[in-house]
């Protein structure tokens, strides 16, 4: 056990615990906030693993943007404040869900732990893939996928816009159609 192992175990425990809380809490808004904690501490995990850039991007994008977006969505869908009994699926579904989650964990662990058993990485003398190396790779080897990603973001933006517009129009039509029928 090295220092990094201990630090990682601590940060990872926070991550796992806050993730668990975020999926079990009865408060809708708390769920989003626990997600924020979980993702933030995951950024800490990245730092411990020596990937400063990934950690910072995680903070920027996930914590800064996505969680905020989720919070907005909760507000727009009039999520109730305070504990709410109707937040979860029926008990038997949750039991099955827990079983499936456990099965996933066990499966992945059974696969990954043997793969990584005894594998260690020396990070103290500077990470092998530091930020300059990532920059080299992104704008060298990965430049086309990178450009493609920008297109993907644009398409997603337009797609989100179009989805809301299209469905809104058809919603109007159904409303009028129903109104006529009612009349």
């Amino acid at each position: 056990m090295t220092t990094r192992d201990i630090v990682f175990a601590a940060v990872g425990a926070i991550t796992a615990l806050s993730a668990l809380l975020s999926v079990t809490t009865k408060h809708v808004v708390h769920s989003a906030l626990w997600l924020l904690v979980s993702l933030g501490s995951l950024a800490g995990c990245y730092l411990v693993l020596g990937q400063e850039l990934v950690g910072l991007v995680q903070l920027l994008v996930y914590v800064g943007a996505i969680v905020v977006l989720v919070l907005f969505a909760l507000m727009l869908t009039r999520a109730p404040i305070g504990p709410h009994a109707e937040i979860d699926t029926p008990a038997w579904q949750r039991v099955v869900g827990a079983l499936l989650g456990a099965a996933t964990t066990v499966l992945l662990a059974a696969l990954l732990l043997p793969l990584f058993s005894g594998v260690t990485v020396e990070l103290d003398g500077g990470a092998p893939g530091g930020t300059p190396a990532i920059a080299q790779a992104v704008f060298g080897t990965w430049v086309w996928p990178f450009e493609l990603l920008s297109v993907l973001l644009l398409v997603a933006l337009i797609g989100a816009f179009a989805v809301s517009r299209l469905v809104l129009r058809s919603e109007d039509e159904t409303v009028t159609a129903r109104g006529e029928v009612r009349r």
Binding site: D5, S22, L42, G97, G101, L108, A109, L112, V121
Partner: peptide, 22 residues
Amino acid sequence: MIHLQLPAALAALLAGIGVYGV
């Protein structure tokens, strides 16, 4: 120096928690 079994285990745990969350 760090043992990579720890992050791998955390990844498996997070995935299971995510599945339960879904």
